[in-house]
Amino acid sequence: MKKNTKRSSVYLAVVFILLYLPILYLFFYSFNKAGTMNQFQGFTFKHYSALQKDTRLLIIALDTLRVALLSSLAATVIGTLGAIGIYFSRAKRTQRILINLNTILLVSPDVIIGASFLLLFTLIGFRLGFYSVLVSHIAFSIPIVVLMVLPKLEEMNEHMITAGRDLGANQWQVLKEIILPDIRPGVFAGFFMAFTYSIDDFAVSFFVTGNGFATLAVEIYSRARQGVSLEINALSTLLFLVTIGLVLIYYFIQKKQRSKKQPLSLDPTNHEKAVRP
C-alpha cells in the first residue's frame, strides 16, 4: 500500500513538472541578460522595463482587460438567465435539446466560431474592432456560464421555490431572494471562467480583431512571428501571474462561502433545551 502511494505521488510529480516546465522555462528566461533563450547570461529586469515603455502594448493590455471584464459580465448575466430558463423549461425534451445545443457551442473549435463570426460581421457590414471582439467574446462565454450555473440549479432544493411562493413571494422575488443567492457560487465561478477564457482567447479574437485593435494574445502571436523577443517572455510571465491572482481570488471566495456554511460549534445541550418544555 505504502509503495503504491509512493509510486503514484512520483507519477503525479512528473505530470505536474511536464505541465509547468515550459511556463517556468519562459519565466526563467524573461530575466535573461542576453537577448535570446539560448543561454542564461545574467539576471536583469530590462525586458520588464522595456515592456513598461511600450505604450502600444500597455494600451492593448488595457483593451484586453476591458473586453474580458465587459464580455464576462454580460455573459454572466445572459448565461445565468439562460440557465434558469433551461432549468424551468417544462418539457424534459426541450431541456435536453437546449443543454445539448449549449454543449455543442462549448466543444466546437474556436477556429470555427471565429471564422463564422468573421463571416457574419462582414456579411452584415459590422466594422471589425473593439465591439466585434466584445460581441464574439460574449458569445463564446455564455455557454461556459451556463455550464457552471446549471449544476447549481439542479442541486438546489426545488421545494425552496415552492416555499418562497408559499410565503408570499412573486416570481421576481423568488428569483431575486431565493434562486440567485443560492446559485451565487456557480455564477461567480461562471464569471471567473468567462473572464479567464476571454483573456487568453486567441483563435476567435484573431479572426475578429481587424485593423487598429488587438488583444494581448493576438499581439503576442504577431510579435512572436517576427522573431522571439524576450519582451514576450516578460509579458507572458506577467499574464501568468495575473491568472494565478484570479485563481487565488476565486479560491478565497469559494473558501469563504464554504466556511460560512460549515457547522461551527454544535452545542449538544442546546437541542435538549429546545425540546424540553
Binding site: 421545494h159 415552492t162 416555499a163 411562493r165 410565503l167 408570499g168 443560492d182
Partner: peptide, 16 residues
C-alpha cells in the same frame, strides 16, 4: 399561491 393565506411546512423543511 402567494396571495393565499395558507402556509406549508415541507417534509424536507425547504429552509433557505
Amino acid at each position: 399561491a402567494e396571495k393565499r393565506k395558507v402556509n406549508t411546512v415541507f417534509q424536507d423543511y425547504a429552509l433557505f
